[in-house]
């Protein structure tokens, strides 16, 4: 039997089945988030050594880089869900995209804020129209555009279509951000960690940063799962499974409309 048939892929793409599943895993992801954050923060301040050149201010890296990575990763995942939602009309994909946007916007803002507060002591300025900073700012505007489109249009289908297109068009900005430090060699330093080459960071510093990155990942998963559950309830409020969930007697006349993908 092909893998495709053995695992009921479509089972959990129905909001009715995804809702309880998300509910079950949320506590586990909270545990992971808190554990990783505690370990990461302890390492950031008490284990990772002082930087020979920047002294202590470099410790901002332990939230700046994870936030920046998350801002790009979340946008990519959001765009992929938007594509799935548009191409195959999977309502849950549209809901996931809507659930991801606020957290992505927050991490983009945090990347800009922590970057500015790291830049002040080291570059001597909070902001400069550098390629990396400017493209990250554009990413923030893309997130804000996505969120405002979502809230401006009442009908979820049309809102998903409009914001989905924006998300997909905005994906071009991601490689620009990533390669900005190489293409336009402006102020922001180049990648000290990249898949293609050995990291130019002390192992303990790298480990700390990666732990913080995983902590931010777990945080993103748990907060998005919680938010998507609220979105599911809102958008599926007409379905019988939601009504039953809230104590309405099983009303015969309302068919499983909610099931139709």
């Amino acid at each position: 039997m092909a893998l495709k048939d053995s695992i009921a892929w479509y089972h959990f793409s129905a909001p009715k089945n995804f809702y309880p599943l998300a509910g079950k895993v949320i506590p586990w992801f909270w545990g992971l988030t808190i554990a990783l954050l505690l370990v990461g923060l302890y390492l950031s301040f008490f284990v990772a050594p002082t930087d020979y050149k920047q002294g202590e201010s470099y410790r901002i890296i332990y939230i700046h880089v994870p936030a920046a990575w998350m801002s790009m990763l979340i946008y990519l995942v959001m765009a992929i869900y938007a594509i799935i939602g548009l191409a195959w009309k999977v309502r849950l994909a549209d809901m996931m995209a809507s659930a991801l946007a606020p957290t992505g916007a927050m991490f983009t803002f945090l990347a800009l804020w922590t970057g500015a507060f790291w830049g002040k002591p080291t570059w001597g300025t909070y902001w400069v129209w550098d390629a990396r900073l400017t493209s990250e700012l554009i990413l923030l505007f893309l997130y804000i555009g996505f969120i405002s489109l979502q809230s401006a249009i009442d009908d979820p289908r049309r809102a998903a279509k409009a914001s989905g297109l924006l998300a997909i068009v905005g994906v071009i900005n991601l490689p620009i951000i990533y390669f900005s430090v190489q293409w336009w060699n402006t102020l922001h330093q180049g990648a000290s960690v990249s898949p293609t080459m050995a990291p130019k960071m002390a192992t303990i510093m790298l480990t700390t940063m990666l732990i913080m990155t995983f902590a931010f990942w777990m945080y993103t998963i748990v907060i998005v799962l919680m938010r998507v559950r609220r979105i599911i309830l809102e958008r599926e409020r007409q379905t019988s499974w939601v009504m039953e969930l809230f104590g309405a007697e099983a009303s015969g006349e309302k068919d499983e409309k909610g099931e139709r993908k």
């Binding site: 002082t50 202590e56 201010s57 901002i60 945090l110 804020w113 507060f117």
Partner: peptide, 18 residues
């Protein structure tokens, strides 16, 4: 934090707050 405490703690505080 070697004189840079303001920048570090404000960054971590804003992150935790948000």
């Amino acid at each position: 934090m070697g004189g840079h405490g303001f920048y570090i703690w404000v960054s971590y505080a804003v992150t935790a707050l948000l």
